[in-house]
Structure formats: structure tokens, C-alpha cells
Design a protein around this nucleic acid. Structure first.
Lengths: 153, 153
DNA sequence: GCTGAAAGGGGCGGGTT
DNA sequence: AACCCGCCCCTTTCAGC
């Protein structure tokens, strides 16, 4: 994992459809070498998968909300994981520290569907309450910066 | 945008490296037809981009937090957008309804870097406070479900 | 709009320095 | 570990239905 690997990651995040030849050119390597490095990044799990970024509004999921789920028991376990995973509108689920137990990211089509989704969350074992944050506008959602995190001023 | 398009999106989300021939087989179309449909999905902006999913821990960003940013003025504007975008550790930024003005998703390497990042957030014009939710464990982060959102029981 | 086939380009495996 | 060169498969296109 050196600077060339990070450059490859950044280039692939920007456009994973580009050829290995183009990729190699941007990082200053031969095609084969670039290919070999990317293969290893996949093998090591640094690249988890190659995927497409779909516009939520185009598939009827233009409403975004974050829901802080409160519970009367420990929710950081497998049954909770599976119960949340079974809800297709839940895009992310995190066990968190703080007033809530779990934070989930939800995408639906309408406020009515948001209400229905909250009702479903209450159906998950142990859930005693929810605090919902509705998103009015998304400034950006972007791929993780592969550069090493440094606290510049 | 029909069921075949949604099936194509789901297949591409799962693995965007697969050939158009394989893609065509899974949706029951010829190679050329599948290719043409995907081309149109890109052209229409339904597929925003093809990218790679990078493991945060592998690039030194194993600490995840959500920060609710409070402000003394309206933050849903371009200057705020740009100020947050300039911070590489900020992966997402949303204007939200509720007690906070903006919700940001932050990835750093250590608690010290999280502290440094919060300090930088206070440097953004108008920010008067932050409430931080630290993630202990991520259950899942997955691609958006391209199927139409329906409130099943 | 889908099918099927034809042609060009690139992925991907060798061996070599 | 990176370069060079090979074949082969996949992408891309076009005529036809």
C-alpha cells in the first residue's frame, strides 16, 4: 500500500470502467504492472467490490432520512443485524455510542413510506423509540478519500 | 425504467466487472440489447458512475462518526457546501430538518484525528456547535435497492 | 427494441530482465 | 516487481427482423 496504490484507488473510484492502459498511464506504470497491483488490491480486500452508483431519485427513493433507534436492550448483536438487513429501505446500519443504540440510513419514495418504515423499525425486537432526521438537501456523497488521513490546518 | 432495467442495476451493483454477456444471461437478453440498455441508463444519469468500494480501515480510516452541526445562520448554501467539501475526511454532508443544520459523515484514522476534524468543523463559517455520534460497529453499508419502494409488512 | 454475427481492441497470461 | 508479447475473449457495432 504505497502512493501508487492510492493513486490507483482514486482513479478507479472516479471511473472504474477505464482500461488498464489508461489507468497505467495516469500512475506512470506499464499496463501489466497496473493490472497486477489492482488484482492484489482486490485479493487483499482493499477493493471490496466494483459497483455502480445509482441515482436514488431515479428509482423512486428520493426521500432520505437518518433514524436514531433507541432500545431497551443491547442491540449490537446478530439478530438485530439480520432484522435490519431484512428491510430493503435501510441502506446503512451502525451500532453507535451515545443516546441511541443504532443509527440507520433510510431511503424511501414518500413521507408516507417513511412513516411505514418507522413502523417497521418499531417491529424490530427491543426497539423502544426512534428519533428521525429528515434530509432536505444532500450537499454531496462521495467515495472515501484513499489518501492517508492527516490533520492539516 | 422497467423490471429488466432494475435487474440490470442490481446485477451491476453486485459486480460491475462482469461481462455484458453474463449480464445479458442473468436478465434473459442478448448481449447487444443488454449493452444498449446499460448505455441508456448511464446516459440518463440513472447510473451516475462506475466505481470501486474501498475498505476504509485498509486506507487508515477505520474510525467513523456522524456529526450534527449546529449553526447560528442558514447553512443550506453554496459557501457551506464548499467549505465542507474542502475537508477530505467528510464523506457526506446533508442539510437536515431538526435541531441540527447539517449532518456530516466523517472517516478518520484515530480519535485524535476526530478531535482535529471537529476543530476544523468549528472553523466553518456560522458553526456554533457539534454533536458527535461515534460508530462502534457497522452492521452493513450496501448499495441502494433499485426495486420500487413498497411498504410490505 | 431485440437478435445474431462480424471485426476491432483490450484483458490476461506467459517468459525475461 | 515491472516490462514485453502473445492469444483469446469481450466489447461494440451493424444489418435484419
Amino acid at each position: 500500500m504505497d502512493d501508487i496504490d492510492r493513486a490507483l484507488l482514486a482513479a478507479l473510484q472516479r471511473d472504474a470502467t477505464q482500461s488498464y492502459a489508461a489507468l497505467a498511464a495516469t500512475v506512470g506504470l506499464s499496463t501489466g504492472a497496473a493490472h497486477e497491483r489492482v488484482r492484489k488490491l482486490r485479493e487483499q480486500g482493499v477493493i471490496r467490490r466494483t459497483t455502480v452508483d445509482v441515482d436514488p431519485a431515479a428509482v423512486g427513493r428520493g426521500v432520505l432520512a437518518f433514524v436514531m433507534v433507541e432500545a431497551n436492550a443491547w442491540m449490537g448483536d446478530s439478530p438485530t443485524h439480520e432484522a435490519l438487513s431484512a428491510l430493503p429501505e435501510v441502506e446503512e446500519a451502525h451500532v453507535v455510542a451515545g443516546p441511541a443504540s443504532v443509527l440507520v440510513k433510510i431511503r424511501v419514495g414518500t413521507p408516507e413510506q417513511l412513516q411505514a418504515s418507522l413502523r417497521r423499525l418499531f417491529g424490530v425486537e427491543g426497539v423502544t423509540g426512534t428519533r428521525t432526521i429528515v434530509v432536505l438537501e444532500t450537499f454531496f456523497e462521495r467515495p472515501l478519500d484513499p489518501r492517508p488521513p492527516t490533520a492539516a490546518p
